[in-house]
Nucleic acid binder design. Structure first.
Lengths: 137, 137
DNA sequence: CTGTGTACTTGCAAAACGCAAGTTCTGATA
DNA sequence: TATCAGAACTTGCGTTTTGCAAGTACACAG
């Protein structure tokens, strides 16, 4: 009753969750920019529109990638946080950075920061994971 | 004159290339299933439609991810292959497999195969890279 | 010179997206 | 306690992208 999948391939199943132009940007903002609220995401550089954002937040919640953090009886100031499943996307993100560094035209400043990831990917992942895990408000 | 990007963020720039539901499936087929021709891709389990496939092959060629392999004066049997930029996506693919293994509901058979990747990711990447690099027809 | 296979193109309906404008709470202020 | 601003969505609607079916173009086999 819950099988709307095009196939059971892991790549496909993953793409059915975050294979679009916006979802990973929301996750990026949560991971690296510390954004947590609807309004935060709306202010992102790429300019996501309101209905798409609401749709993705709902979908990501249903898929268990994010959750509402502070048991929101109130709607105002409701904040989201990544679940372990969401935090688990960090290695993928790191590899995207590394690939971009090698094959896309990035600024020197960005290259410097990605160099740190390349130098010690494991501790980069550990460090970010910790900051994401500890603030469980 | 060539700046249609929503931002210069590496994640965003990457998503503008392969951030959709089909592109990474084509790349998956080239990497792991040995598919090379239009007809091959069309037969994939997920059932990509002809116009989308043609569009993506063209886009991936323009972006330098794939190229026509055997200098096709002829159109019949024209085959595609991954460029180094395309092969470079392998670590991302590997991480997607690993994330799927941890957080999605996969078959035991798939888990076994992903275990090999987890056990020695570097040599998995090296092995696949070699098979992709050597057949330069 | 006629079929057959491969590689696309085209047309059209359906879904997703992008933008602007509402709506609904909630907490602060008068 | 009435009002008002802010945050978090929802709704409508025109545009773009997808999905599906059908058609076209070109090489090669016989």
């Amino acid at each position: 009753m819950k099988q709307g999948n095009r196939s059971r391939c892991p790549i496909n199943l993953s793409l059915e969750i975050w294979g679009d132009k916006w979802t990973l940007l929301i996750i990026r903002d949560m991971m690296f920019v510390g954004k947590r609220t609807y309004g935060d995401f709306l202010k992102s550089e790429e300019g996501i529109s309101t209905n798409i954002l609401a749709d993705r937040l709902k979908m990501l919640t249903e898929k268990g990638i994010i959750e509402q953090s502070n048991s929101p009886q109130t709607r105002s100031g409701s904040a989201y946080k990544l679940t372990p499943k969401g935090i688990g996307l960090l290695p993928i993100m790191a590899e995207i950075y590394i690939w971009s560094d090698a094959h896309l035209d990035l600024s020197d400043e960005l290259r410097d920061r990605i160099q740190d990831i390349k130098d010690d990917r494991a501790s980069f992942i550990a460090a970010v994971t910790e900051t994401l895990t500890k603030d469980n408000s």
